[in-house]
Design a protein around this nucleic acid. Structure first.
Lengths: 127, 127
DNA sequence: CTAATCTCTCCAGTAACTGGAAGGTCAAGA
DNA sequence: TCTTGACCTTCCAGTTACTGGAGAGATTAG
């Protein structure tokens, strides 16, 4: 499987797959005579694993950590749960921040008349 | 007012204030004989304006746009409202994404036993 | 007078890619 | 067989919004 087939299968751009190889996250298992990266199902599964983890907001380093657990025969679900729980807490914190941001901005938007008069509560508030 | 006083007053790190000057967002109105940036209340107000806008998730370029309106005598609240509303929609979209992310991850975390057995639904799901 | 603190500029690095240039490879059609 | 176009390679640079640090000059307190 050449890189474009692998990237399609994994749902990632070619550039990103190459990038992941460069940083040693998921390397192509082999190269063709011409130097083309050749991927197999196992490496595509790893790429999918990374894509999903990234979608969950894990950083690349966290992905590396998770992938380590994933490939570790002796991996413990406790460790994975710990990392995922930590991430969940961060997501919840972000949700709270986003909510107060939303409420504040929504309040300003609704209190702004939106006509061509120069008085605008958004600007008054921000300034 | 030297840069550290201005940065305290604006609630921004010194480095960031200098950075904002470098990119031409908020320049120090003058310099001392020794070349020290000297800020006044007006520039501090602009820095506060930027800090708050950034807290609302506006990008630097959006801040530049907002600041232009802010400093424009003929600014229209309609324009400001348009920009703020657009941002609000983006925030709402992000909230929805974060919510589904949260729900999915929360489901996985609760379904993971968290003991030392190697079967872990989080990893099974991600992989 | 000296030591500490402040300020300056410039350079480099961060995260996680993305875009592009220059050049090699491969498969299909005329 | 040649050529066209799609694909692949590496390497370099740029993105966003800063942050850290080096090296050097300025200012202030004791």
């Amino acid at each position: 499987m050449n890189i474009s087939a692998a990237s399609k299968a994994a749902g990632l751009p070619v550039k990103t797959v190459r990038y992941y190889a460069d940083i040693g996250l998921v390397q192509a298992p082999s190269r063709s005579d011409a130097g083309y990266r050749t991927y197999d199902d196992a490496s595509v599964r790893k790429l999918v694993f990374i894509r999903r983890s990234r979608e969950f907001g894990f950083t690349i380093e966290e992905c590396r950590e998770l992938l380590g657990l994933y490939q570790d025969q002796d991996r413990t679900s406790a460790e994975v749960k710990r990392i995922a729980s930590k991430r969940l807490e961060e997501i919840e914190e972000k949700q709270r921040e986003l909510q107060s941001l939303h409420d504040e901005l929504a309040h300003l938007v609704t209190s702004c008349r939106g006509d061509h008069r120069p008085d605008c509560p958004i600007i008054d508030y921000l300034g």
